[in-house]
Structures are given as structure tokens and as C-alpha cells.
Write a protein that binds this DNA or RNA. Structure first.
Length: 405
DNA sequence: ATTGTGCTAAATCGACCCCT
DNA sequence: AGGGGTCGATTTAGCACAAT
């Protein structure tokens, strides 16, 4: 439970008059301080719908106490660090993040003209100036805090949670001048009794992807769970969960690139029944009403919707899934796989522990960079699983002394 | 109030480079 | 050798402002 100070007033998060106090502070532009630490880190008040919520300042998650709900491992440990300030520019007053994307959100040419050289540059590219589709997916997932987990949520995280948090997160982001939430499409949970109403709302949501009579076509961004890929009469099709009877079309070139680039993801997805494959894609509608995907990237998430990128990380997540303490999975964004980054943080008292997974293919340079990474953060303990050396060591537990390295 | 003009930002095109 | 991917240059669209 968080406590805040607003000017001279101290208020509990659960206080009945919290909303009134926040509304008042919002008008007076009073900056709340979180009382998890002394001195308390500054926060800001955001208006979300008709509610006022207290959010941490961008890049300040590390300033909170590890037990605090607002605590977040520093961005430098994941792939997010290099993107902050360039591809992602956060306005510290409003908390809005302006995102620079490396893919188009509109198309001017003929409908069927596939972009020749504009393939989805993803996991390998180390561009720090712009977000790839998967970088955007990672950032959305991160901001929606879907990379956070505690065993207390077991069985409680469903698609409607995922969807709500993603949309909430998107409201705090702008892309190419407009709010991301305007062009983000996340299918709502499908219930057959509500079929007609759902399809009606879907048609409304997709209105801005309808091609205009003249001028460029606007694209929308889909985030959804892949149900299956199939063969269409020409090219391939993508069926998204919660969207029965609706297909997204991919041309053969895109499908082939997708299978090549995301071969590890496809394999991981195929290897575990409980895992989900999350797709992000830009798409537009044809005049005939067909949805055609322009660019696409995917990400594998475990049963609890926490992303992973290797079988080793999956093992780690399986172990973390049973742990009551909060864990935060790090996302790589555009960071190449051969660069060390923390796999996850485990928030146990007295100090958070960085969990590192060293791939079997690591070389000397990897170890060296990893050492520097750990040394640069003396405020954390570290736990390292060198996969080449064998099975995963036991996770650190509360009150533990310095874990084995 | 409407239309014209200038500016900015984004998309596209073409050339080059790298990896397979 | 070929297909992608990247980078840089060019073109275009959209927006804001201004003038009639």
C-alpha cells in the first residue's frame, strides 16, 4: 500500500477521500511524493478517464523502495535504457511519451503494392533512434506492467486484463503526432451471446482503417494473440484469438520474412501449449473490407503473459511464477541477443536481485560486459545462471546472504 | 469565411552494403 | 549471386498561418 504526501497532507492510497484530494492537487499542480522512502521520490498525477491516479515520474522507478508498488528496475539493465530520450521521449510534466517509429502508419501507393525494401527490421537491428514494431510491443507490454508478476495473481490474469492495461498504457503515448490509443486495436474478449454487439464495436473501432476515396490510407496497429496461421487463396492469413470469422491477410513475402526472422519465437510457441504468441502488426482495410497486414512482429509470452525469448528464460519464468515476491521481467527491445542484459529482477528484501541468464554460446567478451553491468549496479544483488554449466540454480530467497555467483 | 501559400515532417525511392 | 536490410535523398502530404 502506497502513501503519498500532497503539500503538507499525508494520504493513504486506500483513503476514501483520495480522489478528491488528488483532484484538488491536480488543479493546484501539486507534485505528490511517495513515502516509501525518505526523502520520497516525486510523482505526478494523471487523469485517466474520470479517475486520478498517481504515477511515478519517468525513469524514476529505481528511486522507490524495492517493496514499493511503484518500484521498477532501472532501464539501463534492459534494452530500454538506450531508447529513452531518443526513440522514446517522455514529457516529465504530463507523463506522455512521444514515440518515434521506424515503420509507416500510412500508405499512399496502390493497395497491392508491397513495400519492396521496407521489411520489419526487428530483433537483430540495434537502432536506438526509432522503435521497431517489436520495440513498440515491448514498450507497451512494459508500460502496461504485463512483465510484472507475483504468484498472488495466479489464475487472475486474462485477456480482458491484458487488453485494458494495454489500452491504458497506449493512452499515455503519442505516435506521429496523434495518440497511440486512436490507432491501436486490441480485440475485446469474445462471448458468443454478445457476438452482434462485439462485431458492431469492432467495425467502429476499425473505422479509421477504412481507405479514403483519395489520399493516403491510414493504417492501424493490431495487438492480439495469434490463434493460427493459415494458407489463403493468395498468400497467407492470420487468425487472431477473440476474432472468430475475421482474418488478416499477409502476402507471401511478408509471411516468409516473418517465419525467418521470428523462427525462434515460432519454435518456442510450438514447444509449449500454455504459451501465447502475441502479434503486433500494422494493417489497413481494403475497399472490400478485408484487413491486410503491412508489417508484423511477434513475441512469445508464458501462460501468465510474461514474455520470454529462450527456453532458459522460460524455466526461469516458471520458477518465478510460483514466487510470492514481485518479479519484473526485462525486455530486450532492440538489444541484440549477444549483449548481456538482466533477464528479470526479483524484489526481495532487503535488496532486489538481478537475475542473469548467460546463454551457452557466450564468449569472453560477454562475460566481461556482464561483469561490468553487475558492477555498475552495486545496489542490487545478482544471481547468475550459466546455462552451459548445467541446471538452473535455486532462486534467491528472502533474508538470503549474498547469493552464489 | 474561404482560399492560397509556405513550412515541416513523414513516406517513398534509389543506391549501397552486408550476410547468407 | 541474390535477397534483405540500411542509409541518404527526394517527394509528398498535411498543417498552420496569412491574405483577400
Amino acid at each position: 500500500m502506497r502513501r503519498f504526501s500532497l503539500a503538507d497532507q499525508v494520504i493513504e492510497e486506500a483513503a476514501p477521500d483520495l480522489q478528491d484530494a488528488l483532484a484538488d492537487a491536480y488543479r493546484r499542480k501539486v507534485r505528490p511524493l511517495c513515502l516509501c522512502k525518505e526523502p520520497g521520490p516525486a510523482m505526478y498525477i494523471a487523469q485517466v478517464g474520470d479517475q486520478y491516479v498517481v504515477k511515478r515520474m519517468p525513469l524514476s522507478g529505481g528511486g522507490h523502495d524495492p517493496s514499493c508498488f511503484s518500484y521498477e528496475p532501472p532501464d539501463e539493465l534492459s534494452g530500454l535504457g538506450v531508447l529513452m530520450g531518443s526513440a522514446i521521449q517522455v514529457d516529465s510534466e504530463s507523463g506522455m511519451a512521444a514515440l518515434k517509429l521506424d515503420f509507416s502508419l500510412s500508405k499512399v501507393g496502390a493497395r497491392s503494392a508491397p513495400p519492396v525494401g521496407a521489411g520489419g527490421s526487428d530483433s537483430v537491428a540495434g537502432d536506438t533512434k526509432k522503435l521497431s514494431p517489436r520495440g513498440l510491443l515491448h514498450y507497451l507490454w512494459h508500460e502496461a506492467e504485463l512483465n510484472v508478476w507475483t504468484s498472488r495473481w495466479a489464475g487472475k490474469r486474462h485477456w480482458w486484463n491484458i487488453r485494458w492495461h494495454l489500452i491504458e498504457a497506449a493512452r499515455q503515448m503519442t505516435v506521429k503526432g496523434g495518440p497511440l490509443s486512436d490507432i491501436l486495436f486490441v480485440p475485446e474478449p469474445f462471448r458468443s451471446p454478445d457476438k452482434t454487439a462485439i462485431e458492431q464495436r469492432r467495425a467502429e473501432a476499425l473505422a479509421s482503417a477504412v481507405p479514403p476515396k483519395s489520399g493516403p490510407r491510414k493504417l492501424m496497429i493490431l495487438v492480439g494473440e495469434v490463434k493460427e496461421f493459415g494458407v489463403a487463396r493468395s498468400g497467407h492469413k492470420l487468425v487472431v484469438k477473440h476474432m472468430p470469422g475475421f482474418v488478416f491477410l499477409l502476402d507471401d513475402g511478408l509471411y516468409r520474412r516473418l517465419q525467418t526472422r521470428f523462427e525462434p519465437e515460432m519454435a518456442l510457441w510450438g514447444a509449449d501449449e500454455a504459451s501465447h504468441l502475441i502479434a503486433i502488426a500494422t494493417f489497413g482495410l481494403t475497399p472490400a473490407g478485408l484487413a491486410v497486414i503491412e508489417e508484423m512482429a511477434v513475441m512469445v509470452v508464458a501462460e501468465n503473459w510474461v514474455p520470454y525469448e529462450s527456453a532458459y528464460e522460460k524455466k526461469l519464468l516458471d520458477a518465478l511464477a510460483r514466487v510470492r515476491e514481485r518479479s519484473v521481467k526485462s525486455l530486450r527491445y532492440s538489444l541484440p541477443l549477444d549483449k548481456p542484459a538482466v533477464a528479470a529482477m526479483l524484489q526481495i528484501p532487503p535488496r532486489p536481485v538481478g537475475l542473469y541468464v548467460v546463454p551457452p554460446s557466450s564468449d569472453h567478451a560477454y562475460e566481461e560486459t556482464l561483469g561490468e553491468l553487475i558492477a555498475s549496479r552495486p545496489e542490487f544483488d545478482s544471481w547468475i545462471w550459466r546455462t552451459a554449466d548445467g541446471e538452473m540454480p535455486p532462486l534467491p530467497v528472502r533474508q538470503d546472504r549474498v547469493p552464489v555467483t
